[in-house]
């Protein structure tokens, strides 16, 4: 009997890229398809699962999201929606990028969706020069080429420098 209780509260340990360990309840970890697949296969929950691409700060955020969504699966969608928008509210671009990478790696579809959407909402009205910096993209246009692209749908550039 004691062992069945233990099974219900089974926990596993995740290790971030910077060496911090997180003890996570199994039902929370199951929000991640990656972890679910690992648990479904031979991986023992007694082992420490290393996540070498995710730092402690990001992993803490990811697990916060997973916990809320695992615990609230039967509750109202509206409550989760407001949690999601509050969760991302004051996050800076670096944190959002890390979150997108982590959600992609750990295969957490819902988190990937909201973080990608938040980045899209944030860059929506930004000038293209700033977007280059955000995405580390170099301008490979000659001035003439860029002017030609600009001319194509000039109405879209209205209001931008």
């Amino acid at each position: 009997m004691a062992s069945s209780i233990e099974n219900n509260n089974e926990k596993l340990t995740l290790k971030s890229s910077d060496g911090e360990e997180f003890l996570v309840e199994k039902h929370v970890a199951l929000q991640s398809t990656l972890l679910q697949n690992m648990l479904d296969s031979d991986c023992s929950s007694a082992d420490v699962i290393p996540l070498p691409k995710i730092d402690a700060r990001t992993l803490a955020l990811v697990l916060g999201y997973c916990k809320k969504h695992a615990d609230a699966s039967s509750s109202k969608q509206g409550e989760l929606n407001s949690f999601d928008s509050e969760f991302l509210k004051d996050m800076d671009m670096g944190a959002l990028f890390n979150l997108v990478l982590a959600a992609n790696f750990m295969e957490i579809k819902g988190l990937l969706d909201i973080a990608a959407q938040k980045i899209a909402d944030t860059i929506k009205d930004k000038p293209h020069q700033e977007v280059r910096e955000i995405f580390h993209v170099e301008n490979d246009y000659t001035p003439e080429e860029e002017a030609a692209v600009r001319e194509e749908n000039r109405w879209a550039f209205e209001g931008f420098p």
């Binding site: 997108v100 990937l112 990608a116 899209a120 860059i123 929506k124 293209h128 280059r132 993209v137």
Partner: peptide, 18 residues
């Protein structure tokens, strides 16, 4: 994943990025 969530007008503008 990110760009596909932007409005058409923004995307036309972002063709200038590279």
């Amino acid at each position: 994943e990110i760009l596909s969530r932007l409005p058409v007008k923004t995307l036309l503008h972002f063709r200038r990025v590279c």
